[in-house]
Write a protein that binds this DNA or RNA. Structure first.
Lengths: 101, 101
DNA sequence: GATTTATTTTGTAATTTCCCTAAATAACAA
DNA sequence: TTGTTATTTAGGGAAATTACAAAATAAATC
């Protein structure tokens, strides 16, 4: 699960995720949108796959990638949870200066 | 803004953020919750500060850290945006197998 | 000024990440 | 089977990340 946050940390991978969120695409079609060598993209696919954020399906000679929506949603809601976004919390004041004599 | 995702990628930093979300704490008090050397924590504070996720206030000899809630919320909502979480989208089917003769 | 306390900065090492080129694989077509 | 296309794996190098111990700084107190 911590893999997910690592995966999301790289801008290219966030962009891939955003593209795949719109529609499933082949590795090559994704690659066209980037100025990176294909092996580099392939590496990014691997970390997204490892985080279970995308799935891969072979279709003849091409590989089709799809965003794994539920995992994406879990990640966001996990973050909301962790930070209690939505609940109007304010951080408490720090402990007063200790008057230790 | 990409700094935010990088900052969130490390478990120790997520934990710091969660603690600070509850209440402002000194560097030392945060350190007690971890099995890491203080200089290491200090490094983590720096990346959180660089991402503008926390603020620092000197109070005598101690440094008080606070979560910067609005940036936290922006990060989460940026993520929701990017992935359109909430909208019941489904990824479109991949392009049909090209019948190229 | 010297000492103590809280925390950082510096220096260093191990590990990981990111990117590339070249070579390998997989499926299909001729 | 030979070739072509799509994509990966292998290998390698530069840069970033993470961690620690030792030294430095900053404020308060003696």
């Amino acid at each position: 699960m911590s893999d997910v946050y690592k995966a999301i940390a790289h801008p290219a991978r966030r962009k891939i995720l955003a593209m795949l969120r719109q529609q499933a695409l082949s590795a090559g079609d994704v690659a066209k949108a980037f100025d990176l060598a294909k092996p580099t993209l392939s590496g990014h696919f691997n970390v997204l796959k490892a985080a279970n954020l995308i799935t891969e399906e072979r279709r003849g000679v091409t590989l089709i990638y799809r965003a794994n929506i539920s995992v994406l949603e879990d990640a966001v809601s996990g973050l909301m949870d962790l930070f209690q976004v939505g609940e109007g919390h304010q951080p408490a004041a720090p402990k007063p200066i200790s008057e230790t004599k």
